[in-house]
């Protein structure tokens, strides 16, 4: 079982990012579990999105304490990350800049998913694109996020 932690602030889309990743994994025929842990339910407070991946549909129902990877939305949150491996903005990729250029606002989960998939090969980029389409009913939002995801993927070098 693989565990991933996605760490953002309320309103940035950490939970949606966890859901998209879990869907992409499921679309590849594996099992996944995704769930949020909110500090408090308001914009700006730290929010954890957890994802578990396995070949079996059997997961504990508890927080993720020792994630293999932490995806971190901004520098100020790095101190909360528990992962052995760090994917973060702006270090891995300048997710905020790409999000503003592609989506038009600083919700950059899909950009960071691009970075995650490129550097860890946790799933295929095509699966994430399908998952994004499934997540957003609005075609325009889906298209913008796919663009953001692709740029995140392309502009990640390690």
């Amino acid at each position: 079982m693989q565990e991933i932690e996605i760490l953002g602030r309320g309103g940035q889309g950490a939970v949606t990012t966890a859901y998209i990743l879990a869907e992409a994994i499921f679309l590849e025929g594996k099992f996944s579990q995704a769930f949020p842990f909110f500090g408090v339910e308001r914009q700006g407070s730290p929010v954890f999105g957890y994802v578990r991946i396995s070949d079996k549909n059997s997961f504990p129902i508890q927080h993720v304490y020792k994630p293999e990877i932490s995806v971190v939305f901004e520098k100020s949150l790095i101190k909360l990350a528990k992962g052995k491996r760090l994917i973060s903005s702006p270090k891995t990729v300048d997710a905020q800049k790409i999000a503003i250029e592609t989506i038009g606002k600083p919700v950059f989960g899909t950009v960071l998913l691009g970075a995650l998939v490129k550097s860890t090969k946790v799933c295929k980029p095509k699966s994430v694109e399908k998952a994004i389409k499934k997540m957003f009913d609005c075609k325009e939002t889906a298209d913008k996020n796919i663009k953001a995801f692709r740029r995140g993927y392309d502009e990640t070098t390690n």
Binding site: A22, F26, S32, I61
Partner: peptide, 12 residues
């Protein structure tokens, strides 16, 4: 059903 653990979690 347990709040968050079951309401907000996605599983297959």
């Amino acid at each position: 059903m347990d709040g968050y653990y079951l309401t907000h979690t996605k599983e297959v």
